[in-house]
C-alpha cells in the first residue's frame, strides 16, 4: 500500500468513525434512551477518563498479560503439533480428524471445563486463551506445511536433500504466509479468550471489570472496558501484521 493510499484509508476510517459516534450520540439523546441500556459515547469516554486509574493501572495489564502468555503458549504448542503431524503419518492420522472435530465444539462451552481443570488463577485464564488461539495457529501452519509444492520437494530431493533440509529450506518458508494469517486471527481471539477466562472467575482484568460493571448496571463503565478490549485486539493484530511486514520486508513475492 503506498503512503497516499494509506492516508486515504485512514481518512475514510476516521470520518466514518466520527459519523458513527455522532449518530450514536444523536440517537441516545433524541430518543432519550436510558443510560443503563445504551450510554451515549460522551458518557463512555467520560467514564473511561474517570476510572482511568483502575483501568490503566491494573485491569488492562492483567488482561494483556493473560492474552500474550496464552498466545505465546499456543504458538509453541501449535508449532510442535504441526511439526509432529508433518513428520509422522501416524500422528497426523491420529490427531488431525479430532483437531477438525474439536473446532465444531463451541469453545465458550469448553471454557468452564478448562477453568475447572486449570484453576481460578492465572493458569486458568491462560488455558482458556490457549483454547481459543491454538486452532487457528495449528490449522494454518499445518495446512501451509502440507501444501508445499510437490514439484519443489522433488527438485530438492534430486539435489540430495534430506527430510530435514526439505523442511527448513522449503516447507517452513512456504508455510509462513499461512502461519501469519492464522496468527492474525489468533491474536484477536486471544483477547476474547482472556476476557472469557476472567468472566468465569477472577478478581482483576478487563473481563472481570466488565462483568462487575454489567452486574451493577454501570453501562458507561462496561462500554469503557469493551472499548479498551477492542483496542487491545486491534493492537495485537497490528503487531502481528508489523512482524509479518518485517519478515517479508525485502519482498512481498512470497504472498503469491
Amino acid at each position: 500500500m503506498n503512503p497516499k493510499n494509506a492516508k486515504g484509508t485512514a481518512r475514510w476510517f476516521l470520518s466514518s468513525m466520527a459519523l458513527f459516534l455522532i449518530m450514536w450520540e444523536g440517537i441516545c439523546r433524541g430518543f432519550s434512551i436510558p443510560a443503563f441500556i445504551l450510554p451515549p459515547p460522551s458518557d463512555v469516554f467520560r467514564s473511561l477518563w474517570d476510572i482511568r486509574e483502575q483501568l490503566f493501572g491494573i485491569h488492562l495489564w492483567v488482561t494483556l498479560r493473560e492474552a500474550l502468555l496464552g498466545l505465546l503458549l499456543a504458538i509453541l504448542f501449535g508449532i510442535g503439533l504441526s511439526m509432529a503431524m508433518t513428520f509422522s503419518r501416524i500422528v497426523e492420522r491420529l490427531v488431525y480428524p479430532y483437531l477438525v472435530i474439536s473446532q465444531t465444539i463451541p469453545i465458550i462451552a469448553l471454557s468452564p471445563i478448562f477453568i475447572l481443570w486449570f484453576g481460578y488463577d492465572l493458569s486458568g485464564k491462560i488455558a482458556v486463551t490457549v483454547l481459543f488461539t491454538f486452532f487457528p495457529i495449528v490449522v494454518s501452519l499445518y495446512d501451509g506445511l502440507r501444501h508445499t509444492d510437490p514439484d519443489m520437494v522433488n527438485l530438492l530431493r534430486t539435489m540430495g536433500a534430506t527430510q530435514k533440509q526439505i523442511f527448513w529450506k522449503l516447507q517452513i518458508p512456504s508455510s509462513l504466509p499461512h502461519f501469519f494469517s492464522g496468527l492474525k486471527v489468533a491474536a484477536t481471539y486471544s483477547v476474547a479468550g482472556a476476557t472469557i477466562g476472567e468472566w468465569l472467575g477472577s478478581s482483576a482484568g478487563l473481563g472481570y471489570f466488565a462483568r462487575r460493571a454489567s452486574g451493577n448496571f454501570q453501562a458507561p463503565a462496561l462500554f469503557a472496558s469493551v472499548v479498551l478490549l477492542s483496542l487491545m485486539g486491534i493492537l495485537l493484530f497490528w503487531l502481528v501484521s508489523l512482524l509479518e511486514k518485517r519478515y517479508f520486508k525485502t519482498n512481498d513475492h512470497i504472498q503469491k
Binding site: 514439484d151 527438485l155 534430486t158 540430495g160 536433500a161 522449503l170 518458508p173 512456504s174 512470497i254 503469491k256
Partner: peptide, 16 residues
C-alpha cells in the same frame, strides 16, 4: 538422488 543435475519444466525458483 543428488548425483544428477535436473532442470524441470517449470523453473521452480523459490520466490522468497
Amino acid at each position: 538422488l543428488g548425483k544428477v543435475g535436473y532442470m524441470p519444466q517449470k523453473d521452480l525458483l523459490l520466490p522468497w
